[in-house]
Structure formats: C-alpha cells, structure tokens
Design a protein around this nucleic acid. Structure first.
Length: 233
DNA sequence: ATTCTTTGACCACTC
DNA sequence: AGAGTGGTCAAAGAA
C-alpha cells in the first residue's frame, strides 16, 4: 500500500500533551524536594494518579484517531482501485473518441460526443436498444449525478477559474439564456482519456462550478459542484 | 515546439 | 419545420 509510505501509522498523536505533563511536574517535584521534604511522596502519588488518568484518556483518544485513519485509508484504497479499473477500461475505448474528430462523421452513438448521455448507453443495460433508451431517463440520470459545492471568492474576482487543485483545460465558453455572465466549460487535462468535465458560471454575485466524472463507462461518480461565492453574497 | 485560451461555427435537442 | 438554446469542436493566436 502506498499510503503507508505517505502516512506514518505510528502516530504520536498525543505526544505533546504527555511531554507537557512530563516536564511540568518534574520542576514541581524538584521544588517540593528542597522546600517540603517529607511531603514529597504524597504529592508524587497524586501526580502519578493524575498522569495515569491522563494517559488512559490520551490512549483512548489515540485509538479513536487511529480507527479514523484506518477508515480514511480504506476509502482512499477503494477510490484508487476504482480509478485504476476505470482507466484500464477506458484505454480500450480511446479509439472511439479519437477516430472521428469531426462531428459530421460521428454516429449518434459516439461515446465522446454524447458525453454524459453515453454514460448510460454503453452500460450493463446494453440489452436495451437505442430506441428503448428514451431521453427522459437519461436526463434524470444526469441530474442525479451532478452535485455542487460552494467556494467564496473576492467580489473583484470575475474570472471563471476555480483553483481546486486539479488541472483543467478550457474548451468552450457560452452565454446562456438565463444568465448574462458567460459559462465556461473545462475538461480534465491530467490525462487525455480522462472524462471529467466541469462547468463554471457566474450568476449575479456568485460563481458556481459543476464537476462530473465517469467512474466507469457504466455510471457517473459525483465529485461535487463548486459554488464560487463573491464577498458580496 | 508545446500547451492553453479564445471564439465562431456546428450539432443535437426542445419547444 | 423552424427558431432558440446548450454543449462541443477546432482553428487561430497567445503564453
């Protein structure tokens, strides 16, 4: 597992609180030794009890955090395996998107041109013919797989660029009917075969961005939609 | 030379 | 059938 090399599983999550207790009482004990003499043993017992109690509490917290880390690592591995599955499958379908670049030559079932819609065409329900797969279920599928996330920006930020840590290539811009501000269309530039797209729009005083990804040729995986809010909102 | 952005045109879809 | 709209392509230019 790669994450083991990135994440130190032997977390000393509560090392700092322990050190605090280690150092502070030592000074106090030293004082007691010189100033109080025989009262030292009694105070040491009390401190030991307090330390043991604190140690138990910290150990429980450490255990809880370790469990949380395990869950995060498991989720990471699951996502990683899904991505690997998709990229391996997609490499076999690249020819479809590269053979016909001009839309005039494209057939109605061209996977790349139809984008979102094709996510339902080549799925396990392929027993359905093209006529049987009506348009309305497709739209419902699309709506169900696009989510949105908000990101606040400065009011002066009128660009449609959203820094989300990923590499995007802008491939189009449109002015939509219900919005005077243009909408930008981005594709993931991480890999040529990457099907992830997003669109960013600015509506009145805020900007939103949608993300969608083909987890497999059969279905979509929501990544979230970013709502880029200006300060004025 | 390569990558990215811009932008007009094209196409599919809806009404 | 035709107009309007959204999504995409691809050439040209910029970085």
């Amino acid at each position: 597992m790669e994450y083991t090399s990135l994440v130190d599983s032997s977390l000393d999550l509560n090392a700092y609180p322990l050190r605090l207790f280690d150092e502070a009482p030592k000074q106090e004990v030293k004082c007691n030794f010189f100033e109080l003499g025989l009262g030292r043993k009694k105070s040491e017992k009390a401190e030991t009890g307090a330390l043991m109690e604190e140690l138990n509490r910290v150990s429980a917290e450490n255990k809880k955090l370790t469990e949380m880390l395990t869950v995060v690592c498991e989720n990471y591995e699951a996502l990683k395996s899904r991505l690997m599955n998709y990229t391996s499958k997609n490499s076999g379908t690249d020819q479809i998107s590269t053979t016909s670049r001009k839309r005039k030559a494209e057939s109605p079932t061209n996977h790349y041109n139809n984008g979102v819609i094709d996510g339902t065409n080549g799925n396990s329900e392929s027993s359905l013919s093209d006529e049987e797969s009506s348009k309305k279920p497709r739209e419902e599928h699309i709506k169900a797989t696009i989510s949105r996330v908000c990101v606040r920006t400065e009011a002066s930020d009128t660009s449609l660029l959203v820094k989300d840590g990923y590499q995007w290539r802008k491939y189009g811009q449109k002015v939509t009917r219900d919005n005077p501000c243009p909408r930008a269309y981005f594709k993931c530039s991480f890999a040529p075969s990457c099907p992830v797209k997003k669109k960013v729009s600015q509506i009145l005083s805020f900007t939103y961005q949608s993300l969608k990804i083909l987890d497999t040729p059969d279905e979509f995986l929501d990544l979230g939609l970013v709502l880029k809010l200006n300060d004025g909102c």
